[in-house]
C-alpha cells in the first residue's frame, strides 16, 4: 500500500514585489573551485574537488546570492567528517549486518567518513565510465544529471559498493547543515545562509515582538561575534539586534517550478520534538 497522503494545493496568488536581491552590491557570487583559504583534514585533493563541485550545484550561487561553495560548506563537511560525526562515534556500529526492510533506518556497516570516501570514488568512477571525465570536470548540466540519478528521483544510478541514494542524501543533508549552522563550525561563511532566509542567529528577547505580523530585518549575530564582544548585549547578556542596513526583500518563486522532476514530496522531516 502506498503512503497515505492527502495533498491539496490551492492556486497560487502570488504578486511578486520588487525583484531587488538579498545582496545588491556584487554582481557575481561564484567562487572559483579550489580557492578555499582553509586546510582540509579529511578530504584528499580529488575528493575536495568533487565536494566543491557538488555543493556548488546543490546550493548554487545565483541571482539570490552566494551558495554553498562560497559559504565554505565543503570545509564544514570536511571538519564534520574529521570529528565525532564522521567516525559515527555516537552511533551503534556493531554487527551483525544483513538483509533489512525499508523501514529499519540506516543499516550500512560504513561510518559517515567511509560512506563519503566510497561514495565519491564510486561516483567519479561512474562519471569516468559514462562521460570519460571525473564529476568535477563535467559541465553543470551533466553534474545535475548525475546528482539526480544518484538521488534516484530522476533516473537511477547504481554505484559500486554503496547505494547512490544513501550517499546523496548524506551529501545533501550535510550541505544544508553547513549552509545554516553557526559559522563556528566552518560553514555558513559571513552568515550567508542566515541572510538568505532572514534568520537572526543568536536570538534577542522577543517578548515584545512575538505575535506581530511584521518582518524582522536585522543583522544576524553569530557565536563568535558575541564571544569577541562585537555584538551589543543587554544587562542579562541577550543580544540586541541591529536593524539591517538593507531591508531584506524576497520574491515569490514562480508558482510552478520549471523542473519538478526531482522534487521531494514525501512528508517533510519535522522541525519539532515533543
Amino acid at each position: 500500500m502506498d503512503r497515505r497522503k492527502f495533498l491539496t494545493i490551492l492556486g497560487s496568488t502570488v504578486a511578486a514585489l520588487s525583484s531587488a536581491h538579498l545582496f545588491s552590491a556584487t554582481p557575481s557570487y561564484g567562487r572559483k573551485l579550489g580557492t578555499l583559504k582553509k586546510a582540509y583534514t579529511f578530504f584528499t585533493q580529488a575528493e575536495s574537488e568533487f565536494i566543491e563541485a557538488a555543493v556548488a550545484r546543490l546550493i548554487p550561487a545565483d541571482e539570490l546570492g552566494p551558495g554553498a561553495l562560497e559559504a565554505d560548506v565543503p570545509y564544514f563537511i570536511d571538519q564534520q567528517l574529521s570529528g565525532e560525526y564522521g567516525a559515527g562515534a555516537r552511533f551503534y556500529n556493531q554487527g551483525p549486518f544483513g538483509a533489512t526492510t525499508p523501514y529499519q533506518g540506516y543499516q550500512l556497516a560504513l561510518t559517515p567518513r567511509q560512506l563519503y570516501r566510497a561514495g565519491i570514488a564510486a561516483t567519479d568512477q561512474y562519471c569516468e565510465e559514462t562521460y570519460g571525465k571525473r564529476f568535477a570536470q563535467l559541465d553543470p548540466a551533466k553534474q545535475d544529471e548525475v546528482l539526480k540519478g544518484l538521488q534516484g528521483i530522476a533516473g537511477d544510478i547504481n554505484l559500486k559498493d554503496v547505494p547512490g541514494a544513501t550517499f546523496f542524501n548524506h551529501l545533501l543533508s550535510d550541505t544544508k547543515d553547513g549552509f545554516f549552522s553557526d559559522p563556528a563550525y566552518g560553514g555558513n561563511k559571513d552568515m550567508i545562509g542566515w541572510k538568505l532566509v532572514g534568520f537572526p542567529g543568536v536570538p534577542a528577547m522577543y517578548m515584545g515582538l512575538i505575535g506581530r505580523n511584521e518582518p524582522y530585518h536585522v543583522e544576524p549575530v553569530d557565536l563568535r561575534s558575541l564571544q569577541e564582544a562585537k555584538a551589543p548585549v543587554d544587562e542579562h547578556g541577550h543580544v540586541i539586534h541591529r536593524r539591517a542596513a538593507i531591508p531584506r526583500q524576497t520574491t515569490a518563486p514562480t508558482s510552478r517550478p520549471t523542473d519538478s522532476s526531482y522534487s521531494d514530496d514525501s512528508r517533510p522531516e519535522p522541525s519539532f520534538a515533543v
Binding site: 546550493i59 548554487p60 538568505l196 532572514g198 524576497t250 520574491t251 522534487s263 514530496d265
Partner: peptide, 16 residues
C-alpha cells in the same frame, strides 16, 4: 510541495 529539493529553485522557495 512540487519544489525541487536542491538547486536554485529550492533556494528561492526557501528564501521566500
Amino acid at each position: 510541495p512540487g519544489t525541487p529539493s536542491w538547486g536554485s529553485e529550492w533556494k528561492k522557495a526557501l528564501a521566500y
